[in-house]
Amino acid sequence: MNITLGPIPFYWPKQNVIDFYEAAQDWPVDRIILGETVCSKRREMRLNDWLEVARKLQATGKEVALSTLALLEAESELKALASICAQDEFVVEANDLAAVELLFNAGKPFLAGPYLNIYNPKTLELLCKDGLRSWTLPVELSQVELADMLAAIQNMNLHVNTEVMVHGYLPLALSARCFTARALDRPKDECKRICIDYPTGIPVDSQEHQRLFTMNGIQTLSGDILDLRRELPAIQTMGVSSVRIVPSQYDMANIISAYASAIKGDLITDMPPSSASYCNGYWYGDAGMAHW
């Protein structure tokens, strides 16, 4: 079972992003997904910058893919999407059906990120006919739904790999409104990209002082961080091809090392601390913030 390093969900300064992926060259990950998935206003990294990072990672033996926005709202965003899908160096991970259509029309195979919302075998079958090679389980589904999907893949003889997110803030929702700008009393069009000041988002607590969510621009993330490290033996036994670790902070070396060790059977050591507490409720069909 392989490890995929998902795209950075937060808005980090360009040099921080470059330093992060230079460090990732030595991490025990097999595939790295690059690109902006949340907000087109985040322009620290342009397509040429992502391509340069991708080439360097590929030269070290990593498999690399470019990801796309999960919510497109403007013609300019469609043009940027077309540029990503038009390049021929790296496979594209689609997070929106507009990307799927562009890649299908170009006759290119593609990956499906968690935002594509594949909930049933019929959808998976249709997308496989369009060129899908790997899909990511929606984060709110449990091990029961995963088992059903894997059984259907086998019964329908679909040639597609399955990936499960095992670490990171859970992507819960996207909105046309920017919550970070709103919280700081700024109009969305005059946000000045203020979310760059919050490298792990803005915590949102209940009146009982329980962390519920994390504001990340137009995206709502979970308050706690998903941790399925101890569930890896079961995930591996089910026949999952790869697990996805989504960056939850600048320094991910110890966290990724813990997952790599767990895949090899070492579950003795404690999970390294991260930028929030951990949760795993969805995996057990429970509230997502629960921790079994």
Rank of each mutant, 00 (worst) to 15 (best):
M1A: 10
M1G: 07
N2E: 11
T4V: 14
D19V: 03
A23P: 08
W27Q: 08
W27G: 11
W27H: 08
V38S: 00
C39I: 09
K41H: 14
K41I: 10
R42F: 09
R42D: 15
M45K: 02
M45Y: 04
L47Q: 08
W50P: 01
E52N: 14
V53K: 04
R55I: 07
T60L: 01
G61A: 07
T68A: 00
L71F: 11
A74E: 14
E77F: 13
E77A: 02
E77L: 09
L78G: 01
L78Q: 08
K79T: 14
L81D: 03
A82W: 13
C85V: 09
A86E: 12
A86L: 14
A86S: 15
F90V: 02
N95D: 07
L97Q: 03
E101D: 15
L103T: 04
F104M: 10
N105M: 13
N105R: 13
A106V: 13
G107Y: 03
P109K: 03
P114F: 01
P114S: 13
P114M: 03
L116G: 13
Y119Q: 14
N120K: 05
L124S: 06
G131W: 00
L132W: 01
T136D: 02
T136H: 01
T136F: 02
L141Q: 14
Q143W: 10
V144A: 12
L146P: 03
H159I: 11
V160I: 15
N161P: 00
T162E: 01
V164P: 03
M165N: 02
A173Y: 12
S175H: 10
L184I: 06
D185C: 04
R186G: 10
P187V: 06
K188Q: 15
C195N: 04
I202W: 00
P203G: 07
E208M: 05
H209K: 15
R211F: 06
L212F: 01
F213C: 01
I218E: 11
Q219G: 04
T220Y: 08
S222Y: 06
D227K: 04
I235G: 02
G239K: 01
S241C: 08
I245L: 09
I245A: 10
V246E: 06
V246D: 05
Y250V: 14
M252I: 05
A253E: 13
A258Q: 03
Y259D: 02
Y259C: 01
I263R: 12
K264P: 04
G265E: 09
D266K: 09
L267V: 05
D270W: 01
P273I: 12
S275I: 03
Y278W: 13
G281R: 04
W283L: 04
A287D: 15
G288I: 15
